[in-house]
Design a protein around this nucleic acid. Sequence first.
DNA 1: CCTAATCTCTTCCTCAGAGAAGAGAAATCT
DNA 2: AGATTTCTCTTCTCTGAGGAAGAGATTAGG
Lengths: 150, 150
Amino acid sequence: MSTPDDPGAVYRRYLSAVMLHGHAGAKAVGLGATDLYALNILGLGGAMTPGELGRRTGLTTGPTTRLIDRLEQAGYVRRAPDPDDRRKVIVELVAGPGGLDEALAPARRKIGAIVQGYSPEQQAVLFDYFARAADAYVEATAELNDKRAD
Amino acid sequence: MSTPDDPGAVYRRYLSAVMLHGHAGAKAVGLGATDLYALNILGLGGAMTPGELGRRTGLTTGPTTRLIDRLEQAGYVRRAPDPDDRRKVIVELVAGPGGLDEALAPARRKIGAIVQGYSPEQQAVLFDYFARAADAYVEATAELNDKRAD
DNA sequence: CCTAATCTCTTCCTCAGAGAAGAGAAATCT
DNA sequence: AGATTTCTCTTCTCTGAGGAAGAGATTAGG
């Protein structure tokens, strides 16, 4: 096992495959791109108000309401009242048997099997990388959004 | 360094961050979801005819033509004649200074720095994983599309 | 208190993107 | 050579997502 001649190409291929799979999964269960985007935001940022979700998706309030309507009707999300401020609503992911999770399950199994093929030390490296890389992407995404906000 | 208590959570967070970043990058340069989808297909599958691209994106011929028009006008792609069959056109990625690559560059730099922080042996593990995982995702995506084709 | 600010949701309008059907060009088959 | 098939592209239509503006409800401030 050695580092490849063109590490960038390997990584780009990997990234394309990840995104392609996500899109294909969303498409397979009839989820739009923005819907998937919002689900990722909620998965990463936790429950939040529609206003916050709208800000992060870059949508105005009207489309945000309908986005939440769609997700709620499809069973991915639910609206809970904010106990402190009765104007507000809290949108939270619902764990249920969402179609998307099911669609992505085969890939998760494959990835799990690949990871299991490594030694414990090697697995530790992978998970360390996952954690660090996630932070880096979150940061880079925030910078992209900041630039857009100007 | 050790494997985390909930590896699945770490990995899900990582996946969400990756997809979120891709979406945000596309949005930042005014690229639609299908356009990004198509670029990933082309990046992964290499140059192909409009018909093949349409099949893989799940679009009919009309929208496919206009999809290619958009990508071509934006400078991500170009149409080349097929030397063997003059009815056909070959759509290929264009390396140029596309806006998307530029938008995603900061993240690539961050990831590069993270990878550089590992020992050569550890880096080899990571790239081995990237290569295997990419194959797994490609396979899983193909299965998703097959299921849709029924 | 009463006004102003905040938050969500509704309504109307616009437009990008997808489907359907068919035209035109070129290859393949008999 | 003529007919059929295979491609791509064009046109028309329509669904669906997003923006703008405002209503209704609730909280915060003078």
